[in-house]
Amino acid sequence: MQTPAESILHSGYFHPTLRYWQTCATDLRPDNLIYPIFITPHLQPSFLFQDERGSGADSDDTPAVLAIKKIRSLFPELLVACDVCLCPYTSHGHCGILTEDGAVNNDASCLRLAEVALAYARAGKCIFLV
């Protein structure tokens, strides 16, 4: 008889592709590859809100959040992997929060990236590339 802890799947196993990738028998095949889709703002000049901490990165109307929702609605079983990034939303262009002397504040940056990842997860179940 299994204990309750043994019967719960790790969060990395929620999709058949992820389960397959984590087996010893993983090999290189077309269904193991990721097809990249690069999401950009509208073709017309558009403005992404930028500040020191990338506050706009997790709003409901960012290109990434809108794309996740659209992809998830069209292909509900597709494994969606997202790059969690602050660069387009920070006024300094770095993917993190900087200290006054310009160094990366790792603790604040990790917390902020986690907030953005949560917004992406709410938009549609996906894995994150940080």
Rank of each mutant, 00 (worst) to 15 (best):
T62G: 00
I68D: 12
I34D: 14
T3A: 01
N106S: 14
L118T: 14
V80Q: 00
D83Y: 04
R19M: 08
T3P: 01
Y120G: 04
I97D: 02
E115K: 11
I71N: 00
L66N: 12
L74N: 02
V104Y: 08
I127N: 00
L86D: 08
G102Q: 05
A123L: 06
A103Q: 15
T90W: 06
L33F: 14
R112A: 03
A103H: 14
V80A: 00
H10R: 10
P4D: 03
L43A: 13
A64Q: 13
V80M: 00
R112Q: 12
L113A: 03
E77I: 00
P63T: 12
R19H: 04
C95P: 01
R53L: 08
H42K: 11
T40R: 06
P16V: 04
C82N: 09
H15C: 08
D31T: 04
F47P: 00
A25R: 15
R122I: 04
D31E: 14
H10L: 08
A67I: 02
N32P: 02
R53S: 13
K70Q: 14
A121C: 08
L86K: 07
F49R: 12
L9N: 15
L129W: 05
F38Q: 11
V65A: 13
L28H: 10
E6L: 01
Y13I: 06
P16A: 08
A64P: 02
P88H: 07
C24W: 14
L66A: 09
I34K: 09
W21A: 12
V130F: 11
R122K: 15
T99A: 03
L118I: 13
K70L: 11
N105I: 09
Q2V: 00
H15L: 10
T40F: 05
A57E: 02
Q44G: 03
C126Y: 06
Y35C: 07
I39Y: 04
H94P: 00
T99I: 02
D83C: 05
D61M: 02
L43P: 10
R29M: 06
L74E: 11
F14S: 14
Y120K: 04
C82M: 09
L48F: 09
C126H: 10
L18S: 08
S91E: 06
A64D: 13
F75P: 01
S73D: 13
I37D: 00
I8Q: 09
V130W: 01
Q22S: 14
L48K: 05
T23F: 06
K70S: 15
C126D: 09
A103P: 09
A117C: 13
T40A: 03
G12L: 12
L33A: 10
G96R: 01
T17A: 10
A57P: 03
C82L: 06
L18G: 06
A81M: 08
L74C: 00
R19I: 06
R29T: 04
H94W: 03
D61Q: 08
H15Q: 09
H42E: 14
I34H: 12
P88D: 05
C126F: 03
V80T: 05
N106A: 11
